[in-house]
């Protein structure tokens, strides 16, 4: 086991897959230097400019060209730079990538990965802070994973690159410098495999990405109060590991769902539906949700903080469902 940063774990996954498969290439804005997050740093030195393509600031062409390449035999990994910018390639994602296999009756594979650096933090303001995974939950034809740890980031990205279908990988900006253990040997984490990040018996907290860490902090706080919280990380939203979620709820009977994006129409709202559908008879009370407010992310630090769900919010929700 080596202890590495989340960004370095993603870098490792890219290197491993590019070494393994000459069809894999990466494309995005500023990716040769690997700024601002360092995920693609050094790839150009190893794999050359033919496979590490610095693209113009031209999101529709970056994402659209990836589909053209994927349909004709390559395996592109797109760096969206900031997930917010996917709006400039929304037709390419929603109408072209998500639908091509289906609308063509299964004639073509679309093996491509969209890496989505997203999330709130460091006063990045309204155009560089959004948690947009909820937009894509609503689009059939996209697989969506959302790793919270370096180990998951590496294992899921590798699986995503080998997947024959389009996969979006949501990487929270606030996690890039988080460190964790990554196995020395190769590890592929299947899509649709949730993981219990901390076992507990009184309440299940289903959390994604940065909120997994907030939930683990909350669990520590709650432990001091004699409350045992179980933290479950779905790791991928499409496909979703319903069994692991349901298994946890069957044990605890109480559920908090924590995410960073806005409350309305979100991934957490979908998860709440799934819990209701799978576990209605197991629930001892209503599900509580922790999510961002329904406002754009503001710039000024105290305003941004007011819109950032944290461990206190998760702990408060747990206390509430246990009342």
């Amino acid at each position: 086991m080596a202890t590495v940063e989340y960004a370095a774990a993603l870098n490792l996954a890219l290197r491993e897959e590019m070494r393994r498969d000459p069809r894999v290439y990466v494309i995005g804005e500023d990716i040769v230097l690997g700024v601002p997050f360092g995920v693609t740093k050094g790839l150009a030195e190893e794999f050359g400019p033919e496979r590490v393509l610095n693209a113009p600031i031209s999101e529709a062409a970056i994402v659209g060209s990836a589909l053209g390449a994927a349909m004709t035999g390559l395996r592109p990994v797109v760096d969206m730079h900031f997930a917010d910018f996917v709006t400039c390639a929304m037709d390419e994602v929603a109408n072209q990538i998500a639908k091509s296999r289906y609308m063509f009756g299964g004639q073509v594979d679309c093996p491509l990965v969209l890496r989505m650096p997203y999330g709130i933090g460091k006063s990045a303001g309204g155009h560089h802070s959004n948690s947009v995974e909820g937009w894509f939950i609503n689009i059939p034809g996209l697989k969506i994973c959302i790793p919270s740890t370096p180990r998951d980031a590496r294992g899921l990205l590798k699986t995503a690159i080998r997947d024959p279908d389009p996969v979006m990988v949501f990487e929270h900006r606030g996690l890039y410098r988080v460190v964790g253990e990554v196995p020395d040997e190769e590890e592929l984490i299947p899509l649709g495999s949730a993981e219990v990040k901390r076992p507990g018996s009184d309440v299940t907290v289903i959390a994604t990405a940065r909120m997994v860490h907030a939930a683990l902090e909350a669990a520590e706080l709650l432990a001091r109060e004699g409350i045992s919280a179980e933290v479950v990380d779905p790791r991928s939203l499409v496909p979703l590991d319903r069994e692991t979620l349901a298994g946890s709820v069957a044990k605890t009977h109480r559920v908090v769902i924590a995410e960073e994006g806005p409350m309305r129409g979100s991934a957490g709202a979908w998860l709440a539906w799934v819990v209701m559908e799978e576990c209605f008879d197991d629930l001892d009370g209503p599900i509580a949700r922790v999510a961002g407010p329904n406002v754009p992310i503001p710039f000024s630090p105290p305003l941004e903080a007011a819109c950032t769900p944290d461990s206190e919010a998760v702990a408060a929700a747990c206390r509430q469902v246990l009342k």
């Binding site: 062409a61 035999g73 109408n95």
Partner: peptide, 29 residues
């Protein structure tokens, strides 16, 4: 796909951004 026809499209100019990627695939292969 058997004759290289990669789709009609309901969105105007959608194929124009796919084209450089198909071209890249031709170059890399």
């Amino acid at each position: 796909a058997s004759v290289g026809y990669l789709g009609a499209n309901g969105v105007l100019a959608a194929g124009c951004v796919l084209a450089p990627g198909v071209g890249l695939s031709i170059q890399m292969r």
